[in-house]
Nucleic acid binder design. Sequence first.
RNA 1: CGGGACGUAGCGCAGUUUGGUAGCGCACCUCGCUUGGGACGAGGGGGUCGCAGGUUCGAAUCCUGUCGUCCCGACCA
Length: 568
Amino acid sequence: MRTTQLYAPTLRETPAEAEVVSQKLMLRAGMIRKAAGGVYTYLPLAWRTLRKIEQIVREEMDAAGGQEILMPILQPSEIWKETGRWAVYGEEMFRLNDRHEREFCLGPTHEEMVTALVRDEVRSYKQLPLMLYQIQNKYRDEIRPRFGLMRGREFIMKDLYSFDKDEAGLEVSYKKMFDAYTRVFTRCGLKFRPVEADNGAIGGAHSHEFTVLADSGESNIVYCTKCDYAASDEKAELKTIVAEKEEPLELEKVSTPGTKTIELVADYLKVSVEKTIKAVAFQNEKDELVLAFMRGDHDVNEVKLQNAVGAIALRMADEEAITAAGGQPGFMSPIGIKKGTKIVVDATVMDMYNAVAGANEKDMHFIHVNPKRDFKDVMVCDIRLVKDGDPCPHCGAPLKMTRGIEAGQVFTLGTKYSKPLGATFLDENGKEKPLVMGSYGIGVSRTMAAAIEQNNDKDGIIWPRAIAPYEVIVVPVNAKVKEQLDMAEKVYETLKKEHIDVVLDDRKERAGVKFKDADLIGYPLRITIGPKTLESGIIEAKIRRTGEVKNLTKENYVEGVKEILDTL
RNA sequence: CGGGACGUAGCGCAGUUUGGUAGCGCACCUCGCUUGGGACGAGGGGGUCGCAGGUUCGAAUCCUGUCGUCCCGACCA
């Protein structure tokens, strides 16, 4: 490819709408253009990278036993009604009607579709296990599409579904996919971590997220500094912190005027925040009040809480709901709350002694609260959100918190979809059973964005070689010097014959312009043909990531380029 | 959904308060000059000022509506 032909309009200035690095750089590098909120056109450079990622994914899925198919984007409502998700999915689903007023949606995912497909064809355990996948656009009408390709409304995803005859088979399929994902992200040249994740309402055995490490990421993950434990912050289990034992004193109500926050109470009563118990009030989807109680300095993990009370959704509670249950916003504790209210107390709270908690009266708190003695009718479990430095649940070493981008997720589905859709088979004993399923996704377009979030500097993108749109750019310093251009042409043609993805910058631009564009687009290797080449046969190879320049010669540059590429 | 802001040339912005028929930088085209990190000079093309109504002799500017874009709000009550 020649830059005079390449449709990659680079921008010197960043469009005002761009929020994150990947979006800014992709817009500037002429890789993407926005068509509507959260909807983008992929220009040639982006499309090449996407196809490279897809190809890696495809090879690994095939190697793990997957078979590629292509299901429709346009899906009939019937199958979604069978699983109940037509109602549950809500506003996030793009819905439309055909001319006969039949209802359809643009597929946000394909569990229904693939299960419906398989139920008609799979009859016997002899046809199992089966793994089907596709690489295709997905549609989700996000409330707030943001961050360019990171959270779009249309995006490319690889989704694979496994079908097994039993849980043991599912375990095998799951492990295969876990390993395949590890290879995919490794081959893409990304720094990532598989972390234990919550699979919430789905309730399968387990789930892992593959998180590409980047400070700009949206998801928080923790990993152990000693063992190999790693989890998303939603999932991270936490051991109960047992406070130093004290002789329980008698419960006492004290006046604490105006102390609506934990900090104010602690300050007013001259106790540390660790000696206080705070309340966070939620309402579930049925508007029932759910009260969570935490140590003053701890945060609620809403996902854990949601799982604990079996709620589908939680939101902050209205003041009316709190008062109706006998609570007083700002001064709440389980003591004196109306019977029947759902109360969840974090396990750590139960091991506190002589603590401070609200008295459910304005400007009043209890002191000498001993939860084991004073809290009645409460559910106790771990509902704490992990913090940097918390002890690892496996080995106790401090956990480290970091940010990342969720690029892939694997999870077990069990019979959640096969049962309602009636996808069954006959086992060895002629008994009809529902298929045991797993679901495995990779956000392909998001992986591209994540790669940029992880690999960039002030000058632009730094592509890992495996997913770079082109691996090498050949730049003649002065295209008006015929000898330079001829030499550049020769190098370009030679590398092309060696099956290296190479671009020739044949524009009549000044060197600076060409260098800036090459850095912005992020070709892993830049070959410069200049006066030095003509005078002494030196061909410069500059590594984008390190800035390191290697002098190759007219004679050996092909080998040299290959050697360098192999290290990128 | 609630609150806030913005929409003027491909991109970044000024002009709007105080109405008088649109400007700057970059990009683009031509010529000259220049060529190892986004040169310089001269000349040029491009905008129904998001859209639709209204007020006015006259609207980018004032009013109403609408569409779009972006930001903030979602735990310590």
